[in-house]
């Protein structure tokens, strides 16, 4: 067997070696730099800045909340590979959320919650951590509890199918930032949809128990899917997965929450936001 190479010693071996002077940052949040550094965030002519911002916020909130939900699987998935896969899906969605919230804040700064004078919280983190449940614009589908693995697989399948279809259309959006996020997201969502679709098929063809759980979980997701928008192409893809799996579309009535969230969102936000809210001035 050939020698296994690691690497020559370099500055990444010491957590302190790469630090720049004066790089204290807000202690919480996703990362320590502007995700749109140097990107032209001018809103194109003919586009309403507020509408663009709220649209990006909606898309960003969907990704943020599902990312937080999926992160709950960390160390609890059926096996290590699926644990890593779910964490990777969550990470991709968190990345999309960060860019979309940053884009929303740049397009319409009035959407960003006010924080104490001199607060180091970047705008996208202010949106993520300092809004209340009623201000979140995500679909209820992404805030529902995970359920078991089969239910999570069905939910990722539905979400990724709709989002992939939408993002493909958004690659020709007049806003260059949204267009770029969509083009990047298409590549990531393709993996998410295929991951969920393959597991859907596997569980459908597995045991009576795996099939029973898949159908029960899908019924809970299905009632909320209309919130993701009308999309014939996404529906066709879902029909294809269901037909291949020999699973009938759940016979459930759409649940309409009338624009309100379910009670599950506030609990999710409490866990996600509690530490950040205690330390709006926290720097390290």
């Amino acid at each position: 067997m050939p020698e296994i190479h690691t690497h020559e010693a370099d500055e990444h071996d010491s957590a302190y070696a790469g630090l720049l002077v004066n790089d204290a940052h807000w202690a919480f949040g996703t990362d320590f730099e502007d995700p749109l550094a140097g990107v032209d965030t001018t809103v194109p002519e003919g586009i309403d800045a507020h509408e663009l911002a709220t649209y990006c916020l909606r898309l960003g909130d969907d990704a943020l909340i599902l990312s937080q939900r999926l992160s709950e699987w960390c160390s609890r998935a059926p096996d290590l590979e699926e644990d890593i896969a779910l964490a990777n899906v969550a990470l991709d969605l968190l990345g999309q959320a960060r860019l979309l919230l940053a884009r929303a804040a740049a397009a319409d700064p009035s959407l960003v919650p006010a924080l104490p004078e001199g607060s180091p919280v970047p705008p996208e983190d202010a949106l993520a951590f300092f809004r209340d449940d009623r201000e979140f614009r995500n679909a209820c589908l992404v805030e529902l509890p995970n359920g078991d693995f089969a239910e999570t697989v069905g939910r990722i399948l539905v979400f990724a199918t709709y989002r992939l279809s939408l993002f493909q259309r958004l690659t020709s959006h007049p806003d260059a930032v949204l267009r770029a996020v969509a083009a990047k997201g298409v590549k990531e969502l393709t993996y998410h949809r295929d991951f969920a679709g393959r597991w859907f098929l596997t569980l459908a063809r597995g045991s009576d128990e795996s099939r029973r759980r898949l159908e029960a979980g899908l019924a809970r997701t299905w009632a909320y899917r209309h919130e993701l928008g009308e999309d014939d192409e996404a529906e066709l893809v879902l029909e294809q997965v269901l037909a291949t799996s020999g699973i009938a579309a759940p016979d459930v009535r759409p649940i309409s929450t009338g624009g309100r969230h379910t009670e599950h969102l506030s609990r999710l936000l409490a866990e996600m936001q509690v530490v950040a809210r205690q330390h709006p001035m926290g720097v390290w």
Binding site: G18, L20, T30, D31, D92, Q96, R98, K184, G185, E188
Partner: peptide
Amino acid sequence: VVAITPTYSGCPAMATMRDDLLH
């Protein structure tokens, strides 16, 4: 001015890349 393109939307290495480049 150095331009870099993220590999994945959520790539956590971007901040380190930026710091290493500046350094």
